[in-house]
Design a protein around this nucleic acid. Structure first.
Lengths: 212, 212
DNA sequence: ATCTGTGAACCGGTTCACAGCC
DNA sequence: GGCTGTGAACCGGTTCACAGAT
Protein backbone atom coordinates (compact mmCIF):
# COMPACT_ATOMS: atom_id res chain seq x y z
CA UNK A 1 0.00 0.00 0.00
CA UNK A 2 1.21 3.49 -0.74
CA UNK A 3 1.97 5.83 2.11
CA UNK A 4 -1.06 7.22 3.94
CA UNK A 5 -0.98 10.63 5.61
CA UNK A 6 -1.88 10.93 9.26
CA UNK A 7 -4.48 13.53 8.34
CA UNK A 8 -6.24 10.93 6.20
CA UNK A 9 -6.40 8.45 9.07
CA UNK A 10 -7.66 11.14 11.43
CA UNK A 11 -10.44 12.01 9.00
CA UNK A 12 -11.39 8.35 8.53
CA UNK A 13 -11.84 8.13 12.28
CA UNK A 14 -14.13 11.17 12.09
CA UNK A 15 -16.12 9.82 9.14
CA UNK A 16 -16.66 6.62 11.04
CA UNK A 17 -18.25 8.47 13.93
CA UNK A 18 -20.65 10.29 11.60
CA UNK A 19 -21.48 7.15 9.69
CA UNK A 20 -22.35 5.42 12.94
CA UNK A 21 -24.73 8.26 13.73
CA UNK A 22 -26.31 7.96 10.29
CA UNK A 23 -26.63 4.24 10.78
CA UNK A 24 -28.31 4.77 14.14
CA UNK A 25 -30.83 7.01 12.34
CA UNK A 26 -31.36 4.18 9.82
CA UNK A 27 -29.93 6.23 6.96
CA UNK A 28 -28.79 3.72 4.34
CA UNK A 29 -26.91 5.89 1.87
CA UNK A 30 -24.64 8.95 2.03
CA UNK A 31 -22.83 11.08 -0.53
CA UNK A 32 -19.28 12.37 -0.22
CA UNK A 33 -20.77 15.86 -0.05
CA UNK A 34 -22.90 15.08 2.98
CA UNK A 35 -20.07 13.31 4.77
CA UNK A 36 -17.85 16.30 4.01
CA UNK A 37 -20.35 18.72 5.48
CA UNK A 38 -20.55 16.68 8.68
CA UNK A 39 -16.78 16.44 8.96
CA UNK A 40 -15.99 20.00 8.01
CA UNK A 41 -14.07 19.10 4.88
CA UNK A 42 -14.72 18.90 1.13
CA UNK A 43 -16.38 16.25 -1.00
CA UNK A 44 -13.21 15.76 -3.02
CA UNK A 45 -11.25 15.19 0.16
CA UNK A 46 -13.67 12.52 1.35
CA UNK A 47 -13.49 10.69 -1.97
CA UNK A 48 -9.72 10.95 -2.10
CA UNK A 49 -9.38 9.65 1.45
CA UNK A 50 -11.54 6.63 0.72
CA UNK A 51 -10.08 5.95 -2.72
CA UNK A 52 -6.66 5.36 -1.15
CA UNK A 53 -8.10 2.10 0.13
CA UNK A 54 -10.48 0.98 -2.59
CA UNK A 55 -13.75 1.80 -4.31
CA UNK A 56 -16.51 1.81 -1.76
CA UNK A 57 -19.10 3.97 -3.46
CA UNK A 58 -21.51 3.69 -6.37
CA UNK A 59 -21.39 6.41 -9.00
CA UNK A 60 -24.61 8.37 -9.15
CA UNK A 61 -25.65 6.98 -5.78
CA UNK A 62 -23.08 7.54 -3.06
CA UNK A 63 -21.86 5.23 -0.33
CA UNK A 64 -23.84 2.54 1.43
CA UNK A 65 -23.64 3.55 5.10
CA UNK A 66 -23.27 0.20 6.80
CA UNK A 67 -20.91 -1.15 4.13
CA UNK A 68 -18.71 1.92 4.51
CA UNK A 69 -18.73 1.57 8.29
CA UNK A 70 -17.52 -1.99 7.92
CA UNK A 71 -14.85 -0.94 5.42
CA UNK A 72 -13.47 1.91 7.53
CA UNK A 73 -13.51 -0.26 10.66
CA UNK A 74 -11.40 -2.78 8.81
CA UNK A 75 -9.03 -0.12 7.48
CA UNK A 76 -8.49 1.27 10.98
CA UNK A 77 -8.13 -2.22 12.41
CA UNK A 78 -11.27 -1.85 14.51
CA UNK A 79 -12.67 -5.17 13.36
CA UNK A 80 -10.47 -6.75 16.00
CA UNK A 81 -10.58 -6.03 19.73
CA UNK A 82 -7.50 -4.32 21.20
CA UNK A 83 -6.47 -4.97 24.77
CA UNK A 84 -4.60 -2.01 26.20
CA UNK A 85 -2.82 -1.19 29.41
CA UNK A 86 -2.49 2.08 31.27
CA UNK A 87 0.80 2.69 33.02
CA UNK A 88 0.57 5.25 35.79
CA UNK A 89 -2.58 5.60 37.88
CA UNK A 90 -2.19 9.30 38.59
CA UNK A 91 -4.70 11.96 37.58
CA UNK A 92 -4.73 11.26 33.87
CA UNK A 93 -4.23 7.51 34.07
CA UNK A 94 -7.14 7.19 36.46
CA UNK A 95 -9.39 9.36 34.33
CA UNK A 96 -8.60 7.24 31.28
CA UNK A 97 -9.11 3.99 33.17
CA UNK A 98 -12.55 5.15 34.30
CA UNK A 99 -13.50 6.53 30.90
CA UNK A 100 -16.16 4.35 29.29
CA UNK A 101 -15.72 5.56 25.72
CA UNK A 102 -12.94 3.12 24.89
CA UNK A 103 -14.84 -0.12 25.14
CA UNK A 104 -17.48 0.95 22.62
CA UNK A 105 -14.74 1.30 20.02
CA UNK A 106 -13.09 -2.06 20.48
CA UNK A 107 -10.56 -1.05 23.12
CA UNK A 108 -10.46 -2.91 26.42
CA UNK A 109 -8.43 -1.67 29.35
CA UNK A 110 -7.00 -4.92 30.70
CA UNK A 111 -4.52 -3.50 33.19
CA UNK A 112 -3.64 -0.38 35.16
CA UNK A 113 -0.21 -0.15 36.77
CA UNK A 114 1.40 2.12 39.32
CA UNK A 115 4.78 2.22 41.00
CA UNK A 116 3.35 3.45 44.31
CA UNK A 117 2.88 0.39 46.59
CA UNK A 118 0.09 2.22 48.41
CA UNK A 119 -1.82 2.54 45.14
CA UNK A 120 -1.31 -1.08 44.11
CA UNK A 121 -4.31 -3.20 45.03
CA UNK A 122 -6.77 -0.31 44.99
CA UNK A 123 -9.76 -0.82 42.76
CA UNK A 124 -10.64 1.35 39.79
CA UNK A 125 -14.05 0.46 38.49
CA UNK A 126 -13.68 -3.20 37.56
CA UNK A 127 -9.88 -3.20 37.65
CA UNK A 128 -7.33 -3.59 40.39
CA UNK A 129 -4.24 -1.43 40.15
CA UNK A 130 -1.28 -3.71 39.67
CA UNK A 131 2.40 -3.52 40.44
CA UNK A 132 4.90 -2.63 37.73
CA UNK A 133 6.54 -5.98 38.50
CA UNK A 134 3.70 -7.68 36.63
CA UNK A 135 4.08 -5.57 33.51
CA UNK A 136 6.13 -7.85 31.27
CA UNK A 137 4.32 -11.01 32.30
CA UNK A 138 0.89 -9.45 31.67
CA UNK A 139 1.86 -7.98 28.29
CA UNK A 140 3.01 -11.38 27.06
CA UNK A 141 0.16 -13.33 28.64
CA UNK A 142 -2.60 -11.04 27.32
CA UNK A 143 -0.81 -10.27 24.04
CA UNK A 144 -1.16 -6.54 24.65
CA UNK A 145 0.13 -4.36 21.82
CA UNK A 146 -0.99 -0.91 22.99
CA UNK A 147 0.13 0.97 26.10
CA UNK A 148 -0.90 4.35 27.45
CA UNK A 149 1.92 6.04 29.34
CA UNK A 150 0.73 8.49 31.99
CA UNK A 151 3.67 8.57 34.36
CA UNK A 152 6.00 11.43 35.34
CA UNK A 153 8.31 12.52 32.54
CA UNK A 154 11.51 11.24 34.08
CA UNK A 155 10.12 7.71 34.40
CA UNK A 156 8.66 7.52 30.91
CA UNK A 157 11.58 6.48 28.72
CA UNK A 158 12.60 3.61 31.01
CA UNK A 159 9.05 2.24 31.05
CA UNK A 160 8.77 2.64 27.29
CA UNK A 161 11.92 0.56 26.87
CA UNK A 162 10.57 -2.12 29.20
CA UNK A 163 7.17 -2.48 27.57
CA UNK A 164 8.43 -2.42 24.00
CA UNK A 165 10.87 -5.20 24.90
CA UNK A 166 7.91 -7.16 26.23
CA UNK A 167 5.91 -6.79 23.02
CA UNK A 168 4.13 -3.43 23.07
CA UNK A 169 3.99 -2.02 19.53
CA UNK A 170 2.07 1.26 19.95
CA UNK A 171 2.25 3.89 22.64
CA UNK A 172 0.14 6.87 23.57
CA UNK A 173 2.24 9.17 25.73
CA UNK A 174 0.90 11.91 28.00
CA UNK A 175 4.19 13.04 29.52
CA UNK A 176 5.62 16.23 28.02
CA UNK A 177 8.99 14.68 27.21
CA UNK A 178 10.52 13.54 23.91
CA UNK A 179 10.87 9.77 23.64
CA UNK A 180 12.92 7.41 21.53
CA UNK A 181 11.15 4.33 20.25
CA UNK A 182 12.65 1.19 18.72
CA UNK A 183 12.04 0.34 15.07
CA UNK A 184 8.57 -0.94 14.44
CA UNK A 185 6.94 0.83 17.38
CA UNK A 186 4.46 3.65 16.79
CA UNK A 187 4.42 6.52 19.24
CA UNK A 188 1.91 9.31 19.65
CA UNK A 189 2.04 12.12 22.14
CA UNK A 190 -0.78 14.10 23.68
CA UNK A 191 0.47 17.28 25.29
CA UNK A 192 -2.05 19.44 27.10
CA UNK A 193 0.34 22.33 27.65
CA UNK A 194 1.09 22.55 23.94
CA UNK A 195 -2.60 22.51 23.08
CA UNK A 196 -3.21 25.40 25.45
CA UNK A 197 -0.21 27.28 24.11
CA UNK A 198 -1.54 27.00 20.57
CA UNK A 199 -4.65 28.70 21.94
CA UNK A 200 -2.75 31.48 23.68
CA UNK A 201 -0.72 32.01 20.52
CA UNK A 202 -3.93 32.43 18.56
CA UNK A 203 -5.35 34.78 21.21
CA UNK A 204 -2.17 36.82 21.38
CA UNK A 205 -1.71 37.11 17.64
CA UNK A 206 -5.39 37.35 16.74
CA UNK A 207 -4.99 34.47 14.36
CA UNK A 208 -8.40 33.37 13.22
CA UNK A 209 -7.95 29.85 12.04
CA UNK A 210 -5.24 27.37 12.79
CA UNK A 211 -4.30 25.22 9.84
CA UNK A 212 -4.72 21.53 10.44
CA UNK B 1 2.34 39.25 10.43
CA UNK B 2 2.30 36.59 7.75
CA UNK B 3 0.39 33.41 8.36
CA UNK B 4 1.99 30.98 10.80
CA UNK B 5 1.43 27.21 10.51
CA UNK B 6 0.12 25.29 13.48
CA UNK B 7 3.12 22.98 13.22
CA UNK B 8 5.40 25.95 13.78
CA UNK B 9 3.57 26.98 16.95
CA UNK B 10 3.61 23.39 18.22
CA UNK B 11 7.37 23.24 17.71
CA UNK B 12 7.90 26.58 19.45
CA UNK B 13 6.10 25.14 22.46
CA UNK B 14 8.48 22.18 22.35
CA UNK B 15 11.59 24.33 21.96
CA UNK B 16 10.49 26.35 24.96
CA UNK B 17 10.40 23.25 27.14
CA UNK B 18 13.91 22.23 26.10
CA UNK B 19 15.25 25.72 26.54
CA UNK B 20 13.85 25.81 30.05
CA UNK B 21 15.73 22.59 30.79
CA UNK B 22 18.93 24.08 29.36
CA UNK B 23 18.39 27.16 31.46
CA UNK B 24 17.90 25.05 34.58
CA UNK B 25 21.29 23.45 33.79
CA UNK B 26 22.76 26.95 33.49
CA UNK B 27 23.49 26.51 29.78
CA UNK B 28 23.73 30.01 28.35
CA UNK B 29 23.92 29.37 24.63
CA UNK B 30 22.41 26.86 22.17
CA UNK B 31 22.69 26.26 18.43
CA UNK B 32 19.83 25.49 16.08
CA UNK B 33 21.40 22.05 15.60
CA UNK B 34 21.31 21.19 19.28
CA UNK B 35 17.74 22.45 19.67
CA UNK B 36 16.78 20.41 16.61
CA UNK B 37 18.30 17.26 18.06
CA UNK B 38 16.36 17.71 21.29
CA UNK B 39 13.11 18.36 19.45
CA UNK B 40 13.51 15.67 16.81
CA UNK B 41 13.60 18.05 13.89
CA UNK B 42 16.25 19.71 11.70
CA UNK B 43 18.44 22.74 12.26
CA UNK B 44 16.98 24.49 9.22
CA UNK B 45 13.49 23.95 10.59
CA UNK B 46 14.40 25.50 13.93
CA UNK B 47 15.92 28.55 12.26
CA UNK B 48 12.96 28.91 9.91
CA UNK B 49 10.48 28.65 12.78
CA UNK B 50 12.22 31.36 14.75
CA UNK B 51 12.92 33.60 11.77
CA UNK B 52 9.17 33.96 11.19
CA UNK B 53 9.16 36.15 14.27
CA UNK B 54 12.50 37.94 14.17
CA UNK B 55 16.24 37.47 14.47
CA UNK B 56 17.01 36.01 17.85
CA UNK B 57 20.41 34.40 17.24
CA UNK B 58 23.96 35.53 16.67
CA UNK B 59 25.77 34.18 13.60
CA UNK B 60 28.70 32.04 14.55
CA UNK B 61 27.40 31.74 18.10
CA UNK B 62 23.86 30.47 18.30
CA UNK B 63 20.99 31.60 20.48
CA UNK B 64 21.22 32.98 23.98
CA UNK B 65 19.10 30.57 26.03
CA UNK B 66 17.37 32.92 28.43
CA UNK B 67 16.80 35.57 25.76
CA UNK B 68 15.23 32.98 23.50
CA UNK B 69 13.04 31.71 26.32
CA UNK B 70 11.78 35.23 26.87
CA UNK B 71 11.19 35.71 23.14
CA UNK B 72 9.25 32.47 22.65
CA UNK B 73 7.21 33.11 25.80
CA UNK B 74 6.20 36.43 24.35
CA UNK B 75 5.41 34.94 20.94
CA UNK B 76 3.18 32.31 22.52
CA UNK B 77 1.58 34.89 24.79
CA UNK B 78 2.98 33.23 27.90
CA UNK B 79 4.31 36.48 29.29
CA UNK B 80 0.81 37.11 30.57
CA UNK B 81 -1.13 34.88 32.95
CA UNK B 82 -4.21 33.17 31.52
CA UNK B 83 -7.18 32.39 33.74
CA UNK B 84 -9.09 29.39 32.42
CA UNK B 85 -12.25 27.58 33.36
CA UNK B 86 -13.11 23.91 33.09
CA UNK B 87 -16.68 23.09 32.21
CA UNK B 88 -17.72 19.60 33.20
CA UNK B 89 -16.32 17.96 36.33
CA UNK B 90 -16.51 14.40 35.04
CA UNK B 91 -13.53 12.09 34.66
CA UNK B 92 -11.50 14.26 32.35
CA UNK B 93 -12.54 17.61 33.78
CA UNK B 94 -11.60 16.48 37.27
CA UNK B 95 -8.26 15.12 36.13
CA UNK B 96 -7.46 18.40 34.41
CA UNK B 97 -8.57 20.45 37.40
CA UNK B 98 -6.28 18.46 39.67
CA UNK B 99 -3.39 18.52 37.22
CA UNK B 100 -0.61 20.78 38.51
CA UNK B 101 1.22 21.22 35.22
CA UNK B 102 -0.89 24.16 34.09
CA UNK B 103 0.06 26.69 36.74
CA UNK B 104 3.77 26.38 36.00
CA UNK B 105 3.10 27.57 32.47
CA UNK B 106 1.02 30.63 33.26
CA UNK B 107 -2.39 28.98 33.25
CA UNK B 108 -4.59 29.29 36.30
CA UNK B 109 -7.75 27.24 36.70
CA UNK B 110 -10.12 29.78 38.21
CA UNK B 111 -13.35 27.81 37.94
CA UNK B 112 -14.74 24.33 37.53
CA UNK B 113 -18.41 23.91 36.63
CA UNK B 114 -20.85 21.04 36.56
CA UNK B 115 -24.53 20.70 35.79
CA UNK B 116 -25.09 18.04 38.42
CA UNK B 117 -26.43 19.76 41.58
CA UNK B 118 -24.95 16.95 43.69
CA UNK B 119 -21.51 17.76 42.32
CA UNK B 120 -21.82 21.52 42.83
CA UNK B 121 -20.21 22.61 46.08
CA UNK B 122 -17.80 19.68 46.24
CA UNK B 123 -14.18 20.67 46.58
CA UNK B 124 -11.48 19.85 44.06
CA UNK B 125 -8.10 20.70 45.43
CA UNK B 126 -8.36 24.43 46.12
CA UNK B 127 -11.51 24.92 44.03
CA UNK B 128 -15.18 24.48 44.68
CA UNK B 129 -17.25 23.08 41.85
CA UNK B 130 -19.71 25.75 40.78
CA UNK B 131 -23.09 25.78 39.15
CA UNK B 132 -23.44 26.46 35.44
CA UNK B 133 -25.67 29.36 36.46
CA UNK B 134 -22.55 31.27 37.46
CA UNK B 135 -20.79 30.74 34.16
CA UNK B 136 -21.49 34.02 32.37
CA UNK B 137 -21.04 36.17 35.45
CA UNK B 138 -17.68 34.55 36.31
CA UNK B 139 -16.34 34.81 32.76
CA UNK B 140 -17.06 38.51 32.66
CA UNK B 141 -15.92 39.20 36.21
CA UNK B 142 -12.62 37.31 35.89
CA UNK B 143 -12.08 38.26 32.23
CA UNK B 144 -11.64 34.59 31.30
CA UNK B 145 -10.76 34.02 27.64
CA UNK B 146 -10.04 30.26 27.64
CA UNK B 147 -12.45 27.43 28.42
CA UNK B 148 -11.91 23.70 28.54
CA UNK B 149 -15.04 21.78 27.56
CA UNK B 150 -15.26 18.32 29.08
CA UNK B 151 -18.97 17.66 29.04
CA UNK B 152 -21.01 15.00 27.21
CA UNK B 153 -21.14 15.54 23.46
CA UNK B 154 -24.79 16.50 23.28
CA UNK B 155 -24.33 19.32 25.77
CA UNK B 156 -21.19 20.74 24.20
CA UNK B 157 -22.47 23.01 21.45
CA UNK B 158 -24.98 24.77 23.69
CA UNK B 159 -22.32 25.48 26.30
CA UNK B 160 -19.89 26.66 23.64
CA UNK B 161 -22.50 29.14 22.43
CA UNK B 162 -23.10 30.39 25.97
CA UNK B 163 -19.47 30.90 26.91
CA UNK B 164 -18.45 32.55 23.64
CA UNK B 165 -21.32 35.00 24.07
CA UNK B 166 -19.95 35.77 27.51
CA UNK B 167 -16.47 36.52 26.21
CA UNK B 168 -14.57 33.23 25.85
CA UNK B 169 -12.25 33.42 22.82
CA UNK B 170 -10.48 30.05 22.85
CA UNK B 171 -11.79 26.57 23.53
CA UNK B 172 -10.19 23.21 24.13
CA UNK B 173 -12.82 20.55 23.50
CA UNK B 174 -12.65 16.96 24.72
CA UNK B 175 -16.03 15.76 23.46
CA UNK B 176 -15.88 13.73 20.23
CA UNK B 177 -18.36 15.94 18.38
CA UNK B 178 -17.88 18.55 15.68
CA UNK B 179 -18.54 22.09 16.85
CA UNK B 180 -19.32 25.39 15.22
CA UNK B 181 -17.58 28.45 16.61
CA UNK B 182 -18.37 32.11 15.98
CA UNK B 183 -15.92 34.32 14.10
CA UNK B 184 -12.91 35.24 16.19
CA UNK B 185 -13.02 32.20 18.44
CA UNK B 186 -10.29 29.56 18.24
CA UNK B 187 -11.26 25.95 18.78
CA UNK B 188 -9.07 22.92 19.33
CA UNK B 189 -10.20 19.37 19.85
CA UNK B 190 -8.52 16.54 21.70
CA UNK B 191 -10.00 13.20 20.79
CA UNK B 192 -8.70 10.17 22.60
CA UNK B 193 -10.53 7.65 20.41
CA UNK B 194 -8.99 9.12 17.27
CA UNK B 195 -5.51 9.02 18.79
CA UNK B 196 -5.96 5.34 19.59
CA UNK B 197 -7.36 4.64 16.14
CA UNK B 198 -4.31 6.19 14.51
CA UNK B 199 -2.34 3.66 16.55
CA UNK B 200 -4.47 0.68 15.52
CA UNK B 201 -4.24 1.82 11.93
CA UNK B 202 -0.46 1.82 12.19
CA UNK B 203 -0.50 -1.59 13.86
CA UNK B 204 -2.87 -3.06 11.33
CA UNK B 205 -1.08 -1.69 8.31
CA UNK B 206 2.43 -2.03 9.69
CA UNK B 207 3.08 1.61 8.98
CA UNK B 208 6.31 2.58 10.60
CA UNK B 209 6.09 6.29 11.03
CA UNK B 210 3.13 8.57 11.02
CA UNK B 211 3.74 11.86 9.29
CA UNK B 212 3.16 14.85 11.51
C1' DA C 1 -28.81 13.82 -14.07
C1' DT C 2 -26.13 12.43 -10.23
C1' DC C 3 -22.28 11.20 -7.83
C1' DT C 4 -17.80 8.51 -7.62
C1' DG C 5 -12.82 7.87 -8.73
C1' DT C 6 -8.63 9.98 -10.06
C1' DG C 7 -4.86 12.34 -12.77
C1' DA C 8 -3.34 17.12 -12.89
C1' DA C 9 -2.75 21.54 -10.92
C1' DC C 10 -2.12 23.97 -6.93
C1' DC C 11 -0.47 25.37 -2.56
C1' DG C 12 1.99 25.60 1.54
C1' DG C 13 5.22 23.48 4.69
C1' DT C 14 9.96 21.47 4.75
C1' DT C 15 14.55 21.03 3.18
C1' DC C 16 18.53 22.82 0.77
C1' DA C 17 22.22 25.68 0.08
C1' DC C 18 24.57 29.65 0.49
C1' DA C 19 25.34 34.55 1.64
C1' DG C 20 26.26 37.22 5.71
C1' DC C 21 27.94 38.03 10.27
C1' DC C 22 30.61 36.73 14.58
C1' DG D 1 35.60 28.24 11.20
C1' DG D 2 31.00 28.27 13.03
C1' DC D 3 26.38 29.33 12.92
C1' DT D 4 22.31 32.21 11.60
C1' DG D 5 18.87 33.97 8.25
C1' DT D 6 16.52 33.24 4.06
C1' DG D 7 15.33 32.77 -1.00
C1' DA D 8 14.85 28.74 -3.97
C1' DA D 9 13.86 24.02 -4.74
C1' DC D 10 11.38 20.28 -3.29
C1' DC D 11 7.75 17.45 -1.73
C1' DG D 12 3.46 15.90 -0.34
C1' DG D 13 -1.24 16.94 0.91
C1' DT D 14 -5.42 19.36 -0.94
C1' DT D 15 -8.30 21.03 -4.50
C1' DC D 16 -9.86 20.97 -9.24
C1' DA D 17 -12.06 19.20 -13.00
C1' DC D 18 -13.58 15.73 -15.70
C1' DA D 19 -14.18 10.92 -17.35
C1' DG D 20 -16.93 7.02 -16.14
C1' DA D 21 -20.57 4.43 -13.93
C1' DT D 22 -25.57 4.10 -12.48
Amino acid sequence: MKHIAESTVRRLSLYLRFLEECDARAQTTISSGELARLGGTTAAQVRKDLSSFGSFGKRGLGYHVSDLIRAIREILGLDKSWPLIIIGAGKIGTALALYRGFSSRGFAVVGVYDRDPARVGQRLDGLTIRSLDELERDIVRLKVKIAVLSVPGDATQALLDRVTKAGIRAILNFAPVPLRVPQGVTLRAVNMATELEILTFALTNRVESVTR
